[in-house]
């Protein structure tokens, strides 16, 4: 499909807003964004994404979507996972090993309890 005007671009943005992986307060979709830049992958993020996928399947969660994302800048804490639950502030997790990945699903996603040990606090003014 080719967009033929600026209006069409704006319309496209509106039409696809449920298909994007950003935090969307109107959606019921939970997004798990896994850092998959070179540094993340070298630290094992592909494996972590697979574990998250498997665990959410095990728990019967069908509203969880796992997406790859770029580098958040915290190379020291890779692999990183960001949890985006509609209506809540996003949570950044660092040093996510398999055990932590399982906990994120079982504790945070299922029970709503944040896995404190792995939370990263990064002060960022976004633009």
């Amino acid at each position: 499909m080719k967009l033929s005007s600026w209006e069409a671009l704006k319309q496209y943005r509106e039409d696809t807003k449920d298909e994007v992986s950003l935090l969307n307060p109107e959606s019921t979709k939970i997004i798990l964004a896994v850092g998959e830049a070179t540094c993340g992958i070298a630290a094992g993020s592909k494996k972590i994404a697979a574990v998250l996928q498997e665990e959410s399947k095990k728990m019967g969660l069908d509203n969880v979507e796992i997406i790859p994302t770029g580098c958040y800048g915290c190379c020291y804490a890779e692999p990183m996972v960001e949890v985006r639950i509609p209506g809540q502030a996003p949570v950044h997790y660092g040093y996510v090993n398999e055990e932590a990945a399982k906990k994120i699903i079982a504790e945070h996603i299922v029970k709503g309890i944040i896995v404190d040990k792995n939370v990263l606090r990064v002060e960022v003014t976004s633009t």
């Binding site: 696809t16 298909e19 994007v20 992986s21 950003l22 964004a33 850092g35 830049a37 997406i67 790859p68 994302t69 770029g70 580098c71 958040y72 800048g73 990183m80 960001e82 990064v122 002060e123 960022v124 003014t125 976004s126 633009t127």
Partner: peptide
């Protein structure tokens, strides 16, 4: 605090999805 302009979308969007 960091201010992200060049990196504003890094680690936020799915880079393989133009939407």
């Amino acid at each position: 605090s960091q201010v992200r302009i060049a990196l504003r979308n890094c680690g936020v969007i799915n880079p393989e999805n133009i939407k």
